[in-house]
């Protein structure tokens, strides 16, 4: 069978970020936790890639490695390449990498309250981007901050530019985070659970804003999330992670229509739906594995309804399902087929 050894589904043109065979481990007192075990994905300009996974799947650790903000020690990148516009970030000198980060790629964190500095005004923090990266004067930087706040639709930006983060609501703080990420018009934005802490009506506002700005500026977006609803709303492609690996990757429509991995399938079946009243929910049995003790063979095999002998011994590679799809299941054909 055909397998995908290279970065799966390398976008046709204009690849921004190309992560290849990334391995990250945490060396802790309780042993080595293998958080990321050979992850490859790529994002092109103007494209939204959603990385879907539950806690401990390695989805956040992967982007921390990309941004170079991994806690090290205990975290170490042990293998792989992270290519940004063809240049390997991992071998780049630190000061050069710092220039890429911030100006070319930026990150939006889940918890805006702890990501912003509580003792500095938002205007100062937004303006700092321009002072540091563009050498602007404080005064010009402040004007830019007001403009940015307008752009993310914070009402009365001119009056509020001198306010501190705690004076804003959760949704407004997340807008400030977005403004900060957009400040230098980066090529790539990584958003790690950007709306998880927000209420649903505010979540909708923030996601819409993000999608709009992304389109306007033609950026690439990596959206890290556990919410299958948000993914369906905004993503072009999905990478589903489990125990530090990508188990399935596909264009968004394909995956919802016919998942090619039993884990994806289980996830889709286990969420209650707003638009219909179901009977009993399908529940994936058991628990996600501990990363210090990942099962041999396919990491999902102890919870998989389709598992057989081969799954317990042989780690499945990412099989090619179609030109644009990959599944790390020995029996993906059965999985797609029995729908």
């Amino acid at each position: 069978m055909d397998t995908l050894t290279e970065s799966p589904l390398v976008p046709r043109t204009d690849t921004l970020l190309d992560v290849r065979d990334l391995h990250v481990e945490f060396r802790t007192r309780d042993g080595i936790a293998k958080a990321v075990n050979g992850v490859s994905y790529a994002v092109a300009r103007g494209e939204t890639l959603a990385v879907l996974g539950e806690s401990g799947s390695g989805k956040s650790v992967t982007v921390q490695a990309v941004m170079g903000i991994l806690d090290s020690p205990p975290g170490f990148v042990t293998r792989g390449e992270i290519l940004f516009r063809g240049e390997n970030l991992l071998t780049m000198p630190a000061d050069q990498r710092r220039k890429v980060r911030g100006a070319k790629m930026a990150m939006i964190f889940q918890d805006a309250l702890s990501a912003l500095n509580p003792v500095l005004t938002v205007g100062y923090q937004l303006g700092e981007m321009f002072v540091v990266h563009r050498g602007m004067s404080r005064r010009d930087a402040r004007a830019m901050a007001v403009e940015l706040m307008d752009r993310v639709r914070i009402p009365a930006a001119r009056q509020r530019v001198g306010d501190y983060p705690h004076q804003f609501s959760g949704g407004m703080r997340q807008r400030i985070m977005i403004a900060m990420a957009m400040a230098l018009e980066p090529d790539l934005i990584i958003a790690d659970e950007p709306t998880t802490a927000l209420d649903v009506t505010v979540q909708a506002q923030v996601m819409d804003l993000l999608a709009e700005l992304r389109q306007e500026m033609g950026m690439g977006l990596i959206l890290i999330t556990h919410d299958l609803g948000v993914v369906a709303d905004v993503a072009d492609r999905i990478a589903v992670m489990y125990a530090g690996r990508i188990v399935e990757t596909a264009p968004v429509h394909d995956i919802y229509r016919a998942p090619a991995h039993p884990y994806t399938k289980g996830l889709l079946e286990s969420i209650p739906r707003l638009d219909r009243k179901g009977k009993e929910l399908y529940a994936i049995r058991g628990l996600p594995p501990s990363l210090t003790d990942v099962p041999p063979g396919c990491a999902f095999n102890p919870r998989c309804p389709m598992a057989r002998e081969r799954c317990r011994t042989e780690v499945p590679p990412l099989y090619r399902v179609t030109a644009e799809r990959g599944s790390a299941c020995h029996y993906w054909e059965e999985c797609v087929g029995d729908d």
Binding site: A204, G229, A232, D233, Y256, L268, R273
Partner: peptide, 12 residues
């Protein structure tokens, strides 16, 4: 408004 804001897991 609340109901309409909930993202539904169906890209179609």
């Amino acid at each position: 408004a609340l109901l309409s804001a909930v993202p539904v897991p169906d890209p179609d």
